[in-house]
Design a protein around this nucleic acid. Structure first.
Length: 490
RNA sequence: GGUAUCGUGGCCGAGUGGCUAGGCAGUGGUCUGCAACACCAUCUACAGCAGUUCGAAUCUGCUCGAUACCUCCA
């Protein structure tokens, strides 16, 4: 019973063998902090949070590195590209670092609500410019990069002669090279597939650093290469991220590691799939994304109501990380119900008394839990087994099945452990109550009070008013009927 | 156009070549003053066509369809 991981490199499930026994290094691409975190950000965060939790449970000492990209990348490949963070800074009339700070905090608080553990190290791109410059130097020294007007590019054609470029995404770069021989005019790159590893800063560019090639800023893909090498070594165990980063981002990382260090950066590449909305990818560019904060508050036109962060987490874990997951209100509502069922069962299980004999093989259930996760972190299967356990728990509760003292204790611990510690689902029975609910509740209360008044039952009517007043809701009887408002705290 | 992923019952979503995943909804029950909750039971499926096989949702080929990447995105 050993862990297997689907490796994007081989497109197969492989047995997981860490490079250094008992230690695992894992790098996951974090967000570029230029906007509020949305549901799409939650997916890799939760996916790799479970990987992190489970690897630790298996006894590995895990160093989990997830970066914050706070250096503005260019919006496109053109030489006059706009820095995303700088653009947002202009838009919000803030210093770029204020933008970065604001959205980093938002990202952290949302992930905390989703009960994601903090990574072991959360390095920032701007804090590692020196390392990135050093890496550029290495790539130049090895002859895989060239300078052009103060910018440095990776020479993909040259690189491809020694190392295959495109092995991760399954692209055959030869074809591309053939087809793009004649370059569009103003590009300073030798070849359109070449990518910048250092970019010269024009006069208006705010975020800039001095380098041997003049003032500039690091290339889009370089930070992950430099920071993963710094904290995990030149070759480490697991590299994770969203599928959309496979090309060009991760492909570039592989190339940079080879070009600079003559080795592959990661042994296992894991990619989580996208979240879709109405069958379409949820993404910033499509403008169909829903922010996490909006899920928690219900404040979005696509949302019927608010959803508890644990509902979101459960919803994501109910699908396997490599499959797409389609968002809908009914799917979320179903997830919420299912999750509450598990939570209820944890409680039920605590109140069950033991018997002299066990009618169920507890060990078998435990094995099922483990084999689900060992099979490429198959959380939906694990959840299915947990639901099977709920049935057993209910049977125990009415005495249809029995467990002895030891088995009962083991079962209770295991069941809760997998839900709470491995899947990271905090048991909460709280359904999000939003303003719509309060409106509805108030309407009902006021109707009741009106009825009471009509029946001259002023005791009840006054009780409703006074009790509401105690919780800072004020009622006003007017000519047009009764209105209410929340009193401001004084 | 190239590359990749995928098409499962009302919805969401697993899936090993043979032994009906699971959840939600629906239906029937138990419980209940009536309901709700909870619990028990239960129906509907594998895009199409051809092939391999004793046997295929699962393997192969083709067709149709969807999505993503190829420019920033998790």
């Amino acid at each position: 019973m050993s862990l297997t991981i689907y490796n994007t490199l081989s497109r197969k499930k492989e047995k997981f063998i860490p490079i250094n026994k008992d230690h695992v290094g894992m790098y996951v691409c974090g967000p570029t902090v230029y906007g509020s975190p949305h549901l799409g950000h939650a997916r890799p965060a939760i996916t790799f949070d479970v990987v992190f939790r489970y690897l630790q449970h298996l006894g590995y000492k895990v160093r989990y590195v997830r970066n914050i990209t706070d250096a503005g990348h260019l919006e496109n490949d053109a030489d006059e590209g706009v820095d995303k963070i700088a653009k947002k800074a202009v838009l919000e009339k803030l210093e770029p670092m204020e933008i970065v700070q604001k959205y980093t905090l938002e990202y952290h608080s949302s992930l905390e609500l989703l009960n994601c553990l903090s990574p072991s190290i959360e390095p920032r791109a701007t804090g590692h410019v020196i390392e990135q410059i050093e890496m550029v130097k290495k790539m130049m020294a090895n002859g895989f990069a060239y300078e052009q007007n103060g910018s440095i590019y990776l020479d993909v054609a040259k690189y491809n002669k020694k190392y295959p470029y495109g092995i991760l995404s399954g692209r055959k770069i030869d074809d591309t090279l053939e087809g793009t021989r004649e370059l569009h005019n103003q590009s300073e790159k030798k070849n359109s597939v070449d990518f910048a590893i250092w970019k010269k800063a024009n006069i208006n560019h705010i975020m800039r650093w001095s380098s041997p090639w003049g003032e500039g800023f690091p290339g889009w893909h370089l930070e992950c290469s430099a920071m993963s090498a710094k904290y995990l070594g030149e070759t480490f165990d697991i590299h994770g991220g969203g599928m959309d980063l496979m090309f060009p981002h991760h492909e570039a990382e592989i190339a940079q590691s080879h070009a600079a260090n003559n080795c592959t950066p990661a042994k296992y590449w894991m990619h989580n799939n996208m979240i879709t909305i109405d069958g379409q990818k949820m993404g910033k560019s499509l403008n169909n994304f829903i922010n996490l904060e909006e899920f928690f508050s219900g404040n979005h036109e696509k949302l019927d109501r608010a959803y508890h962060p644990m509902t979101i987490r459960f919803f994501i874990l109910q699908a396997h990380y490599r499959g797409t997951l389609d968002f809908s209100n009914s799917a979320l509502a179903a997830a919420e119900k299912g999750f509450l069922k598990l939570v209820t069962a944890i409680q039920t299980l605590k109140n069950i008394t033991h018997n002299n004999v066990s009618s169920i093989d507890i060990k078998k259930i435990e094995v099922k839990y483990y084999s689900a996760l060992n099979d490429d972190f198959n959380t939906p299967i694990l959840i299915a087994h947990l639901f099977d356990s709920v049935k057993i728990i209910n049977a125990l509760n009415i005495g249809k099945e029995t467990l002895n003292k030891k088995d009962l204790k083991t079962f209770a611990l295991t069941f809760e452990f997998f839900i709470v510690d491995v899947l990271g689902l905090k048991p909460t029975t709280e359904k999000k109550i939003n303003d719509n609910n309060i409106e509805g509740v108030m309407k009902i209360l006021l109707e009741l009070r009106n009825k009471a008044k009509q029946n001259k039952d002023y005791i009840t009517a006054d009780m409703i008013r006074d009790e509401l007043d105690k919780i800072s809701i004020q009622i006003k009887d007017g000519r047009e009927g009764t209105t209410w408002n929340m009193k401001k705290d004084d």
